[in-house]
Simulated scan of single mutants.
Amino acid sequence: MKIAITRLENKAAGDRALCAAYGHDCYTVSPLRAELREERIDAFIEAVHRGEFDCLFFASALPAALIAPRLERWPRVIAIGPKTAEVLRGSGIDAEVLPSFYSRAFAPYLGDWLRGRTVGIPRADLPNPELIEAIIAAGGRVREERVYALVPTGTELEVEDADALLFTSAMSYREARWQPRDGLLLIAIGTTTADAMRAGGHPPAVVGDGSLAGTLEALNRCVEGR
């Protein structure tokens, strides 16, 4: 199956090899681009080096790619999923991976350890009040640094030759310009994205576990009728 996968421009490293391992081919379509905020990146790295955080939480691969190569020291590090952890490992950081690949799993995963501790979160300029409230409710403190903005490209996605279209976030679905057609299998990487797609009138045929590998496994189960 040929799958169009929504990714930021130039941020699809490893997708094709992983898809091939599950018997598929893929290519990138980009409804969003990242607008970096260099001063905020610098400020966050300086705060890490000053020892201001007891824990870092990387909720996607892009902030990991922006920040990890420049870190000389770090506290406990949590990655939202295997792709983010892989990026961190490339810079020598052995991160823990959440048991389910959603930010809502962060506070329950750390539990009582959060009490009195400060979490640093480099992220996109998107609100996540549930995550912040959960950390505070557990007795922790949070400093978010919004190190990049996500900007719609305005480019129509090229899906004419695709057998499937995989949305990797709710925002990538909401901001995408594309032409639905019969025979195009719609896939959501996880439940949050699936909810956005249903609300927009495009319910996915396949819903993953929040990771690309888990989504490809779900796709193969669907194809095989399991």
Score class of each variant (00 low, 15 high):
residue 24 H to F: 09
residue 15 D to N: 12
residue 172 S to T: 13
residue 194 A to G: 04
residue 91 S to C: 08
residue 72 E to Q: 11
residue 213 A to W: 05
residue 110 L to M: 12
residue 128 N to H: 06
residue 69 P to W: 04
residue 90 G to W: 05
residue 212 L to P: 00
residue 212 L to D: 07
residue 160 E to F: 12
residue 100 S to P: 01
residue 25 D to C: 14
residue 163 D to Y: 04
residue 32 L to A: 05
residue 119 V to C: 03
residue 187 I to S: 01
residue 215 T to L: 04
residue 72 E to R: 15
residue 87 V to C: 10
residue 161 D to N: 15
residue 97 V to L: 01
residue 100 S to D: 12
residue 181 R to L: 10
residue 86 E to R: 15
residue 85 A to W: 07
residue 27 Y to G: 05
residue 87 V to F: 09
residue 114 L to T: 12
residue 5 I to V: 09
residue 140 G to Y: 03
residue 206 V to L: 02
residue 119 V to D: 03
residue 7 R to A: 01
residue 153 T to N: 01
residue 143 R to N: 09
residue 223 V to R: 15
residue 3 I to A: 02
residue 213 A to R: 13
residue 21 A to P: 00
residue 218 A to G: 03
residue 81 G to Y: 06
residue 62 L to N: 08
residue 82 P to Y: 06
residue 197 M to A: 06
residue 71 L to H: 11
residue 20 A to E: 04
residue 9 E to F: 09
residue 91 S to H: 15
residue 181 R to Y: 05
residue 199 A to L: 04
residue 165 L to P: 04
residue 48 V to E: 11
residue 139 G to N: 02
residue 89 R to K: 12
residue 7 R to C: 05
residue 9 E to N: 11
residue 79 A to P: 03
residue 30 S to N: 13
residue 208 G to P: 00
residue 35 E to Q: 15
residue 226 R to G: 04
residue 168 T to P: 03
residue 77 V to K: 01
residue 225 G to T: 12
residue 42 D to R: 15
residue 78 I to G: 02
residue 97 V to M: 02
residue 154 G to A: 00
residue 110 L to W: 11
residue 115 R to I: 11
residue 87 V to H: 05
residue 185 L to G: 04
residue 36 L to K: 13
residue 182 D to H: 09
residue 123 R to I: 10
residue 128 N to S: 14
residue 160 E to Y: 04
residue 20 A to W: 00
residue 12 A to M: 05
residue 28 T to K: 14
residue 26 C to M: 10
residue 38 E to D: 13
residue 212 L to F: 07
residue 12 A to C: 11
residue 172 S to A: 14
residue 51 G to K: 03
residue 200 G to K: 01
residue 18 L to F: 07
residue 151 V to G: 00
residue 224 E to C: 12
residue 38 E to Q: 15
residue 76 R to M: 12
residue 169 S to L: 11
residue 210 G to R: 08
residue 68 A to T: 07
residue 49 H to D: 13
residue 129 P to R: 02
residue 216 L to N: 00
